[in-house]
Structures are given as structure tokens and as C-alpha cells.
Design a protein around this nucleic acid. Structure first.
Length: 779
DNA sequence: CACCATTGTCATCGT
DNA sequence: ATACGATGACAATGG
């Protein structure tokens, strides 16, 4: 456990440091929450070259770069990860069969409402008023509430038994509208059945007209274009490949409507309708005729009310989509998603893969992002205008309260929708009024946080485009400022083969050496010598191999060399009194070079040169050893295990100076190898980090894409929920058979899955209260 | 001569 | 307490 923590911490720190060195500013948390593979790798160690890193290393690192280890939060990471996966799984979410219970709540002053409510007990008390939903923080709330809302509706629709209800003309109109909405939203194809194709085509034709007006697409016939662009009529966005999906969506929406109607059969009766909705606090346009209602509901999302994900978010999404195309990093899913012909920018950007479970329909995305669409040069003015126009046409239906719509949606709680009531925890059941959604919390914490992090990351110059570029260059040359990193790699290349093995071997060797030393197991020090990086071993071996021959110390040289070593100073006087001992094991050539004064032997020029060469090959410690007449090789001194080393020393009667020198030689020699190992390890670490950076960038790109997909699907679900809400609400009738005014009443999901019709004021209050919660929690 | 990379060495810390 | 490895810092060296 401890080691794992260490690895994690160090790896992340090092990685962060490297990134900072490279010039990429990285939010560690972001990567923690988004990069699993690298993280795991770091934790497990394979990629961490600092397997033997010491604590002081960490300390130094921290000191040097001011990175706080606390920034690493595994729990958050895993939690976010899990939650995200859950959220992403919403598409395949299995809606549990539930009972639909609806209660009509009369608009009583205050407390009376609660009395009329079922066991679920809505938290009307908590209501603080949703009036000003337009506030800056609306975005988050809105998204949360919308999610819950959509979820509930989804459940409702799925649960409701299919019934062939008799649709009135009005209903059909509504359905058509819903169809279009679905198309715009890019609802998943697989979701829909093809039963209503015929009808859809009619609608498509209408849309085609609008689509054809738009600019022509490069490389594709006008016909094909018209066909493909059908969907965009309302939103002004074009999805070349999405048409089929759009049809499907329509079909689906219709079916859903039918089911919903069926489920809510008892419409006229006492305003009671069965619905499995957790909490619909608002989302009902204040005033509106049937057609207008939907528009109003949708308009918030389509236009600019998508505040939860601000402009930058939108930007990100779009950019990520584009970059995804550019990058081949895409996973299989991504590839599936983007199978549009690369040539056409629009087509590529907005094409929907027919088979993708999650709709990649960018147009939908943009539709919801209307507010930010202006920022995109990519979109032709026409395209931009289209969505607005479409929404505007619909808007008239519920002109009075665009804000009310926003507020209502903003306050809605998604949590209950996405997860079955039982999953929502006890809080929901008991604290109905407060409508605390576990899911909402989850979404809030995980998804939104991630999103915000992503935004932040992009904000800080790590934009998707760059990432994509980097991605492209990964194989050849990383666009990252890794020039430096590359150079090291090239530098290390000579050792390349050894570097990778060295890291592993070094660690193993060190461990083995230590173990052997401690256990005194190693009988052959030569092995240990081979273990290290020591290049000296070769020279030493050579020297040793040359055999022991008489050796004449050259004092002048010794003196020069020994002055560095304090221990030598003391020994110098001693040396003067020592006679030449030719029995030392020293290389004869070396002896010659050292012993023979150049002037004395003019005729041995070549030999002398060789001697000089060999002499130069000798390390300073070797010279010192020779000067001190150490009876064994430095290699032995350095590499012999402690026990053998001591044994060796005991065999000879060595002076204090000699012993001191020997110990220094051993110390220096070991340290020398250690330094070499350390440097190599450093290099390996850098290389590994470099690779990790690349991996992380790849992962980031992938996660961005996933995020885009998720957001897209989320929007789709929101749209559906809105539509369904409208449908249900529009069909509610009071005792007198009159429809309820959206401005005065709203549907609300209870924690137990029931749906209540409550006065809007209460709904707003509740919604507002809910909105406040997550915020507080975050702080 | 300045600059840079490499290498050796020392001091220090942790095991 | 000792030996040892790891590593930052410094210096020597060579290009």
C-alpha cells in the first residue's frame, strides 16, 4: 500500500514536472480524473523508472516545484470515473418498470399542498422560488434538473404499456413537433423503430426545402445533400449522414408519445395521470398553446439556456469533435461515430454514424448551443440562423415565459430520473420536498466537475486542436515541446537497448546486490560488477587481466593526484619512506607508463604512448591505489561484498593510510556506479514521462470525445423529457376538463417515482432550493 | 574564452 | 551502528 502510494505520488509529480518543463500547463486533478491507463501504469510501476526513488527525492521534487502531494486525490478520481461511466451508461439505461402515480395538487396557499401530496412528500416547504433562473449559475442547475427531468420522462415512456390511443389532430401536430425535435436532437438511431417512416418522409421533405437552401456541400450531389440535410430544417444544422437516425428518432418520439398518452390515459379525469417521474419541478412554459409549449420547452435548450456548459464548453465540444476526426486515436466507437467522408468539413463534423448507439449528431449539439454558435466560423450564417428561426416559430406558442421555461428546467432534478427511486437513497424518499437527487449530486460532482476541468484544461491553452495536432505527430515527432525530450531519447538511443533493460536490471541488480550484500550470499563479485552501469568494470577488468607485475610508483604523480584526497596527504610522507614494491598486482603497461620517466627512455616512444594511454585510462583512484601500493585491484575493492572485502583486507597488513585509501576508493567507486545508475535512471524516467505524456494526451483526446458524446446524449434525453413533459402536461385536465395553465402549474417528480401536479410557485421554490444545495456542497 | 555535456566526487538522506 | 544505495550539487574535463 505504501509503495503504491509512493509510486502514484511520485509518478504524478514527476509527470507534472515534466509537463511543466515542457511548457504544458497541466492540472493534475484533471488528469487524475481522466487518465486511467497512465495512472495505473504509474501506480503499478512499470513505467516508473524511479522504482527506487527515495523519500527525499519526493521532498526535493516538491520543494523544487512547489507541487503539493495533496493535489492527488485517488478517491475523487475513481469516484468521478465511476460516476461518469454511469452517466455514460444512461443511453443503455434499463428503465425499471414502475408504477405511475399522479396526484393533483391544488393550488393552496402553502401548507395545504403538502397535505395533498402522497407519501413521497414533496419538499415544497423548501421551495424558495425559481423566479430568477436566469442567473449566472443557472447553467449548472439547469443541467442537473433537466437531467432528472428527462430521466423521469424516459422512465415514464418506457414503462407505459403501449396502447393504441386515438390521437386527435392536435396530438398529431404535437407528435410531429416532437419528431422534429428528436431529429434535431439527434436521438440515437437504434432507439427508434422504423414503423413511421412514411410519415416521417413527409416531414423530411419539408425540411429538405430548408436544407437545400443552405450552401452546397463539396463533393456531394445536391440530391444527396438535400436528402442528408433533411434534419436540419429547424435547427439550421445539417447532418449529412444522420437522416436515417432522424427518421428513427421521429418514429421513436411518436411511439413514445403514444406510450406516454397511453400511460397517462386518464387524462381528463381529475387531472390524475400515471407517470413514473421522480421530480418535475417545472419545465412548463407559462403560457402557451399546444404547439407553443414544446417550443418553449425546447427553446431554452436550443437557444442559449444551455448555460450549464458555457461557451467554452461548447467550443470544446466542437473542437474535440473536429480534432477527433483528425486524430486516428479514435477508438473503435469513435471511428464508428465519425465515418463521414473526411473531405467535407460539414459532413464530417456533423455526420452521424448510422449505427452508433449514441447520437453523434453535432447539429443537435449546436442547436442546444445556439448561444455559442455565433462564435463558430465553421457555421454558415444560414445554418446558424436556421435554428433560431425554427425555435422562434415554435416559441410564439409560449412567448410569455421564456424565462419561466428556463427556470422550470433549471430547477428540475435529474437525479431521480436517471436512477430508480430505490437507488436514489433514502434521502429522496423521506425528504421529498427537498428533492435531493443522488444522481443529481453524482452528475453534479462527477460529470460537471469533469467538464469544468476539461474546460479549464482547454482554457489553459491545452486546446483540443493542439491535442489533435500532437496526436497526429505522435508517431513521427511529437508536436509537444518535447524537442528536448526527443533529444534525450536520441541521446539515450546509443544506450537505448540498455536503458530500458537498465532500468529494470538496475533496480533488480540493486536489490539483488543489496540482498546479496546483506545476506553475504554473492560469492562472485564480478557478477555484481556486471550488474551496475559501471563502464569502469571493463577497464578494471582489463587492468586486472593484464596481471600482476612489478610496479614502480611514481611519487610526483601520486602527489599531484593525491592532493585532492585528504587521506592522501597524510600518506604522502609515509610514501616517501616506502620502498618500491614490485609485487603489486598492476598492469605492466601501466607500470611502465607510470614508472618510466619519459626522458629516460627515448627509444620507447610507442610504448610510452601506449603507457600514457593506459595511464590515462586509469582512474585517479587507481593511480592512488598504485601509489599507495594497494595489493589488490580497485575492482575488487569496489565490487567485493563487504565480508569478502573485509576478509581481503585482513589478509594484508595495510597501513592506516592504505586502509583509508581503500575505503575511499570503495566508497567513490560505488558512488560512481551509483551516480551512473542514477543518471541513467533519470534519463529513463524522462523518456518514460515523455511517453506517458503522449499517452495522456491521447487519453485526453479520447475522453474529450467521450464527453462530447455524453453531452450529446444528455441533450437528447433532455429534449425528450421536455417533450414528454409537454405532452403529459398538455393533456392534463382539471375537474372541468380544462387544461392546466403551464404558468400556474407544473409537474414535479417525487423521490418515489410519483408525479405531482403542483402550483408553479411551489415548484419554483423547490427548484431554487435544490439549485442552492449543490453549490453549497461544492464549497 | 565561453558554453555545454559528460563524468567523477562529495554530502546527505533513507533503508 | 554500519554499510550501502540514491541523488542533488559541485567541479573537472573535453569538445
Amino acid at each position: 500500500m505504501l509503495s503504491l502510494k509512493k509510486y502514484l505520488t511520485e509518478g504524478l509529480l514527476q509527470f507534472t514536472i515534466l509537463l511543466s518543463l515542457i511548457g504544458v500547463r497541466v492540472d493534475v486533478d484533471t488528469y487524475l480524473t481522466s487518465q486511467l491507463p497512465p495512472l495505473r501504469e504509474i501506480i503499478l510501476g512499470p513505467s516508473s523508472a524511479y522504482t527506487q526513488t527515495q523519500f527525499h527525492n519526493l521532498r526535493n521534487t516538491l520543494d523544487g516545484y512547489g507541487i503539493h502531494p495533496k493535489s492527488i486525490d485517488l478517491d475523487n478520481y475513481f469516484t468521478a470515473r465511476r460516476l461518469l461511466s454511469q452517466v455514460r451508461a444512461l443511453d443503455r439505461f434499463q428503465v425499471p418498470t414502475t408504477e405511475v402515480n399522479a396526484w393533483l395538487v391544488h393550488r393552496d396557499p402553502e401548507g395545504s399542498v403538502s397535505g395533498s401530496q402522497p407519501s413521497s412528500g414533496l419538499a415544497l416547504e423548501s421551495s424558495s422560488g425559481l423566479q430568477d433562473v436566469t442567473g449566472p449559475d443557472n447553467g449548472v442547475r439547469e443541467s442537473e434538473t433537466e437531467q432528472g427531468f428527462s430521466e423521469d420522462l424516459e422512465d415514464l415512456g418506457a414503462v407505459a404499456p403501449p396502447v393504441s390511443g386515438d390521437l386527435t389532430k392536435e396530438d398529431i401536430d404535437l407528435i410531429d413537433i416532437l419528431w422534429r425535435q428528436d431529429i434535431d436532437l439527434g436521438a440515437g438511431r437504434e432507439i427508434f423503430d422504423y414503423s413511421h417512416r412514411q410519415k416521417e418522409q413527409d416531414v423530411d421533405k419539408e425540411l429538405q426545402d430548408g436544407a437545400e437552401q443552405e450552401d452546397t456541400w463539396p463533393g456531394e450531389g445536391a440530391e444527396a445533400l438535400a436528402r442528408n440535410l433533411l434534419v436540419d430544417g429547424e435547427t439550421g444544422e445539417s447532418f449529412p449522414a444522420q437522416v436515417p437516425g432522424g427518421e428513427d428518432q421521429r418514429a421513436l418520439s411518436l411511439e413514445e408519445c403514444l406510450r406516454l398518452l397511453e400511460a397517462t390515459c386518464p387524462f381528463g379525469e381529475n387531472a390524475e395521470f400515471p407517470a413514473d417521474i421522480s421530480s418535475i419541478t417545472e419545465a412548463v412554459p407559462s403560457e402557451s398553446e399546444p404547439p407553443g409549449l414544446q417550443n418553449n420547452l425546447l427553446s431554452p435548450l436550443l437557444t442559449g439556456t444551455e448555460s450549464p456548459f458555457d461557451l467554452e464548453q461548447q467550443w470544446q465540444d466542437l473542437m474535440s469533435i473536429m480534432e477527433m476526426q483528425a486524430m486516428e486515436v479514435n477508438t473503435s466507437t469513435s471511428e464508428i461515430l465519425y465515418n463521414a467522408p473526411p473531405g467535407d468539413p460539414l459532413s464530417t463534423n456533423y455526420s452521424l454514424a448510422p449505427n452508433t448507439p449514441i447520437n453523434q449528431n453535432v447539429s443537435l449539439h449546436q442547436a442546444s448551443l445556439g448561444g455559442c454558435s455565433q462564435d463558430f466560423s465553421l457555421f454558415s450564417p444560414e445554418v446558424e440562423s436556421l435554428p433560431v428561426a425554427g425555435s422562434s416559430t415554435l416559441l410564439p406558442l409560449a412567448p410569455s415565459n421564456s424565462t419561466s421555461l428556463n427556470s422550470t428546467f433549471g430547477s428540475t432534478n435529474l437525479a431521480g430520473l436517471f436512477f430508480p427511486p430505490q437507488l436514489n437513497g433514502t434521502a429522496n424518499d423521506t425528504a421529498g420536498p427537498e428533492l435531493p437527487d443522488p444522481l443529481g449530486g453524482l452528475l453534479d460532482e462527477a460529470m460537471l466537475d469533469e467538464i469544468s476541468l476539461m474546460d479549464l484544461a482547454i482554457e489553459e491553452g491545452f486546446n483540443p486542436v493542439q491535442a489533435s495536432q500532437l496526436e497526429e505527430e505522435f508517431d513521427s515527432d511529437s508536436g509537444l515541446s518535447l524537442d528536448s525530450s526527443h533529444s534525450p531519447s536520441s541521446l539515450s538511443s546509443p544506450e537505448g537497448s540498455s536503458s530500458s533493460s537498465s532500468s529494470s536490471s538496475s533496480s533488480s541488480s540493486s536489490s539483488s546486490s543489496s540482498s546479496s550484500a546483506s545476506s553475504s550470499a554473492s560469492s562472485s563479485f564480478s557478477e555484481e560488477g556486471a550488474v551496475g552501469y559501471s563502464s569502469d568494470s571493463e577497464t578494471l577488468d582489463l587492468e586486472e587481466a593484464e596481471g600482476a607485475v612489478g610496479y614502480q610508483p611514481e611519487y610526483s604523480k601520486f602527489c599531484r593526484m593525491s592532493y585532492q584526497d585528504p587521506s592522501q596527504l597524510s600518506c604522502l610522507p609515509y610514501l616517501e619512506h616506502v620502498g618500491h614494491n614490485h609485487t603489486y598486482n598492476m598492469a605492466p603497461s601501466a607500470l611502465d607508463s607510470a614508472d618510466l620517466p619519459p626522458p629516460s627512455t627515448v627509444k620507447k616512444g610507442s610504448k610510452e604512448k601506449q603507457a600514457d594511454f593506459l595511464d590515462k585510462q586509469m582512474s585517479r583512484d587507481e593511480h592512488r591505489a598504485r601509489a599507495m601500493k594497494i595489493p589488490f585491484t580497485n575492482d575488487k575493492i569496489i565490487n567485493l561484498p563487504v565480508e569478502e572485502f573485509n576478509e581481503l583486507l585482513s589478509k594484508y597488513q595495510l597501513s592506516e593510510a592504505q586502509l583509508s585509501l581503500i575505503r575511499d576508493i570503495r566508497r567513490r567507486g560505488k558512488n560512481k556506479m551509483a551516480a551512473q545508475n542514477c543518471r541513467k535512471r533519470k534519463l529513463d524516467t524522462i523518456l518514460n514521462l515523455e511517453r506517458d505524456v503522449e499517452d495522456l494526451q491521447r487519453d485526453k483526446a479520447r475522453l474529450l470525445q467521450e464527453k462530447v458524446e455524453f453531452l450529446r446524449s444528455l441533450r437528447q434525453m433532455k429534449q425528450k423529457v421536455q417533450s414528454l413533459y409537454q405532452e403529459v402536461f398538455g393533456r392534463l385536465r382539471d375537474e372541468n376538463g380544462r387544461p392546466y395553465s403551464p404558468s400556474q402549474y407544473a409537474l414535479q417528480y417525487a423521490g418515489d417515482g410519483s408525479v405531482l401536479l403542483i402550483p408553479r410557485t411551489l415548484a419554483d421554490q423547490q427548484a431554487r432550493r435544490q439549485e442552492r444545495k449543490p453549490k453549497d456542497r461544492r464549497k
